[in-house]
């Protein structure tokens, strides 16, 4: 690890700590109310969903329109797991229970990622898109008809384990892991498939394995997001995981910039908070939202950040450089 990397780690860690401190103070002093804390928690979950979808859509370059399906699997499986633990009367600290939930949600969704990805990733473009929609719908219809998870009426009585404190740090960890994944040899191999699949194979990359890996990683983190959702809402119903929800996540990723993780984060924040802000316009809310979406795409089709990442270190460097230039030019005047 060189000097520059160390510096950038330090800056980012400090920034995250500061951000957390800020929210912590705001929440403790009741400057922001519970309703808004709820929005922040949902935003964190949507960030995880968008980041994980970006692995398939941005890194691998495949149209995946069924992300809500993996989220549903993660949500329901983790909820069943924690319910079983609680019902069995096993005592464990809530953070440990949450960890179990995350692990179960992520792993079960990841397994489904392998099962679904292996046969379908031969399909290309829009055909893959429609097949992912299909799987997500089948999953949703399964939960509507499946008695043990409450069917269409929903699953009640899930332990509420998620609060802003833990969801904030889980989101940070997930973001960092997906980031490092993208910058590892595995991430590079996946990105090379997006760039040119034939060239990638000719460069010795086992493309099939990496496609499934990318798909599975995305499913894993989506399942983890689902587990968070389940243990925040404490209630699940199949209708939440409908087709439009998958589309919503996809919109977030494209709007942020395919392949840009910081773009996904930014976009998830904007697109989760914005509709809430527009709530006072109630019936015009989605009209405005959709118009903004259309206008945004017409004027910035590559998304907010395109494929580039926002780097706090570079940003600070630039700020300092500008200041330096200013001081030297000031000095010159004297």
């Amino acid at each position: 690890m060189d000097q520059k990397k160390k510096k950038s780690y330090l800056i980012n860690t400090a920034a995250i700590a500061l951000l957390y401190l800020l929210f912590f103070v705001l929440i403790q002093t009741k400057t922001i109310n519970n309703y808004f804390v709820g929005i922040m928690i949902m935003t964190c979950i949507m960030i995880i969903m968008a980041l994980s979808l970006n692995i398939v859509a941005g890194f691998l370059g495949q149209m995946a329109l069924g992300h809500a399906g993996f989220m549903a699997i993660g949500a329901y499986s983790s909820a069943m797991a924690t319910k079983a633990i609680v019902d069995a009367g096993i005592e464990m600290p809530s953070i440990l229970l949450l960890l179990v939930a995350l692990l179960v949600g992520g792993l079960v969704a990841g397994i489904f990622g392998i099962l679904i990805g292996t046969p379908t990733l031969r399909l290309r473009g829009d055909y893959l898109g429609i097949v992912t929609i299909g799987f997500a719908e089948i999953i949703r219809i399964f939960f509507i008809n499946f008695g043990p998870t409450g069917g269409a009426a929903g699953l009640k009585g899930i332990s509420k384990l998620v609060d802003f404190n833990n969801v904030f740090f889980i989101t940070v960890i997930v973001a960092v892991l997906i980031f490092t994944f993208g910058r590892s040899k595995h991430g590079r191999a996946i990105i090379s498939i997006r760039e040119d699949e034939i060239a990638s194979e000719s460069a010795g990359v086992p493309t099939t394995i990496y496609k499934v890996l990318g798909f599975t990683m995305a499913a894993f983190f989506a399942g983890l997001g689902g587990a968070l959702y389940a243990h925040y809402q404490a209630f699940l119903e199949p209708s939440k995981f409908a087709f439009m929800f998958s589309i919503e996540m996809f919109v977030i990723v494209v709007l942020g910039g395919l392949g840009s993780l910081t773009g996904s984060i930014l976009s998830a924040i904007v697109l989760t908070v914005l509709p809430e802000m527009l709530r006072e316009f109630s019936e015009y809310r989605l009209l405005i939202y959709s118009l903004l979406l259309i206008i945004m795409m017409i004027f910035r089709p590559q998304g907010m950040l395109g494929r580039s990442e926002f780097s706090l270190t570079d940003f600070i460097d630039k700020l300092i450089m500008r200041k330096n230039r200013k001081t030297t030019s000031d000095g010159g005047e004297k």
Binding site: V254, L255, L286, S290, M297
Partner: peptide, 22 residues
């Protein structure tokens, strides 16, 4: 958006769909 990335056009179509519905 005719010469833009295809996914951007897709998102626009989704936007139009939500718009018309509302």
């Amino acid at each position: 958006l005719r010469n833009a990335p295809r996914l951007s056009a897709l998102i626009t179509a989704i936007g139009v769909s939500i718009f018309l519905q509302n």
